[in-house]
Design a protein around this nucleic acid. Structure first.
Lengths: 335, 335
DNA sequence: TAATTTTGTTTAAACGATTAAACAATTGTC
DNA sequence: GACAATTGTTTAATCGTTTAAACAAAATTA
């Protein structure tokens, strides 16, 4: 690689000290520096195609202008859309984002945190999976700025931005009840992640208060790290019985995707035979003959807000900020 | 933030010089260092939870163990799948990947390259859009290791890994002809990107050689940065005429997605009225009542190969490596 | 036993920036 | 004209590593 131009190279070329070059290029002490000298320095920097060595700067300033973002699964549109929003928002503030995907694997999550800390990110944005509590506590203890997104731990006081999952599930069930569906099932995740648990809690609570049905006879769960493993099976459990459900709430785009594929196979008619409602919008919902009714998460707002909170925490330690954002019900053809 | 433990802290604790600590932790001069001292150093490092300051190391070694990857659009599953593959492959070799999404915007692409170079990435993996030639030439001139993926410039001698787009399009058309379709249209991108042009060239060439049809009367193009802008219009041009096409080749998952949504609106029957074939697999193709026949790109191989080439180029400058990988035809219900 | 080699460790410079403090030259004040 | 204030610039230390070179002590050789 060609040797890069340093402050010293510019200084030598112009005939001044490198300190002066630094002051000029960083626009410090602007009042005191000779205008002509300053302009010469700027011109020379441009001519030599000078580019700040961020590594050296970071070493001195102890700031990298970098944030680390660990999503649950980068190949899920929920994560990748969020990734883009956060990247754009960070870029506006002169920050670069390092991404990592934990794939719902606690060890991978931990390794990514390690890697990011080694690289001295200024802060972390995290969508933590199961068994990440210790890691989160460690970050707190080290006073490393971070914000949780999409997921959080009720037992740990942290910054977070999440969907109000309880309310969202409640809204979904309430909509199905209003449409006249009587036997409403749900397929959620078999996971201890609190925000996901809130979805099933919202479902159960709504069922009870709106239809008087108690218990979770119609609730089924799939593996979070391998939805396809038992999705068909649980759908069969809800449908291939004497009194099948007449509506299903899917707890995520991923569950809905694989669920619908199986419903296609079964040639179930939506919404005549079975109504469908799901969490998360997806462009491809419109590929299905009955475009899905869904709970829209305010991704843009979540991403912007989480970035804002994180950057504020990096700049100066602030009060805890916790946001439960409302989802919105988008009614379409499947209910 | 809590002050972090440095080599010096360990050295003080153990009562040796920080050089010795460095040698031990990096396993250099292993033969000469006293085994007991070495073990004490390792134990102390662990006890104090020492973590290398990569910033300082990078400044000295001029290596960051980081690569920058600029994709065309991180929210497209093609890009995000590739991103995950490259991330995993890089991690195996102890590299971290910085991602950026150019969104087919030459300026954004340029800015991302700048940002990555400022951060001293050791190399770049790029899916360049239009007007990126100058930038690529600059990288060459600066002798910065890089590899192009998915796209390349025939006029510039670089490392690249791409799909054999000409052959893939040829295969697609050939399949349609074999199925008995007579009037085969294509919707591609209105773009000068060479690998995309190759798709239309493959289509035209196959049409000519297999059916004797010359010219591009049935070829339509949509905007690459806004597919939805005119996709409906061009579909109308192919269908709402006296002799409509009986098959369409879509040049990407994105075009196919929006195309199918419109076909759903039009209540066109696939494949009875119209056969569909597309580039790129997508889990959601199965949401469509007639799961799509498609050209599968060897993503895993592309990602692994490109990473391997890039890392080889970082370690030591190697011969140019150029790969045109074959796609595979996955025949399903839409043709 | 003196000279040499080996072993174990330290010293010190370097990477490229930032920045407080020092300094010289000029300008202003009384 | 002496002193102070301002202006413009440089000096030098520092961030936390790496690593060649130096060095002292112990072991080996002659």
């Amino acid at each position: 690689m060609v040797k890069r131009v340093s402050l010293k190279d510019i200084a030598k070329e112009v005939g001044v000290s490198s300190a002066l070059v630094s002051y000029v290029l960083n626009e410090k002490k602007t009042g005191r520096i000779d205008k002509i000298v300053a302009q010469t320095i700027r011109d020379t920097a441009r001519r030599l195609n000078y580019r700040t060595n961020q590594i050296a700067r970071s070493l001195k300033t102890n700031r990298t202008n970098t944030i680390g973002f660990i999503v649950a699964d980068i190949s899920n549109p929920f994560s990748s859309s969020l990734a883009r929003i956060v990247e754009d928002e960070a870029a506006k503030n002169n920050y670069t984002v390092l991404f990592g995907s934990s794939d719902e694997n606690a060890l991978k999550f931990q390794n990514l945190v390690e890697i990011f800390l080694n690289r001295h990110v200024d802060g972390l944005m995290l969508a933590p999976g199961e068994h990440a509590e210790a890691q989160i506590r460690y970050l707190q203890q080290q006073e490393i700025p971070f914000v949780l997104i999409d997921r959080y731990f009720p037992d740990i006081q942290t910054n977070y931005v999440i969907l109000d999952n309880f309310q969202a599930a409640h809204t979904a069930v309430s909509h199905l009840v209003n449409c006249g569906y009587k036997k409403i099932g749900m397929i959620g995740y078999q996971s201890s992640i609190y925000t996901l648990k809130e979805r099933t809690r919202g479902y159960l609570s709504a069922l009870e208060s709106l239809t008087g049905v108690m218990g979770n006879a119609l609730l089924r769960e799939v593996q979070i790290d391998d939805v396809e493993a038992n999705i068909n099976e649980v759908i069969d459990e809800l449908l291939a019985v004497d009194e099948p459900v007449d509506a299903i709430l899917f707890a995520s785009n991923e569950i809905a995707l694989h669920g619908l594929i199986y419903l296609n196979e079964l040639k179930i008619k939506v919404p005549e035979q079975l109504a469908i409602i799901t969490f998360d919008g997806l462009a491809s919902w419109d590929l299905f003959y009955a475009p899905l009714t869904y709970i829209r998460q305010p991704l843009q707002e979540m991403g912007e807000l989480a970035t804002k909170i994180l950057l504020e925490n990096i700049e100066n330690t602030k009060q805890l900020q916790q946001f439960n954002l409302p989802g919105s019900l988008i009614v379409r053809a499947s209910t």
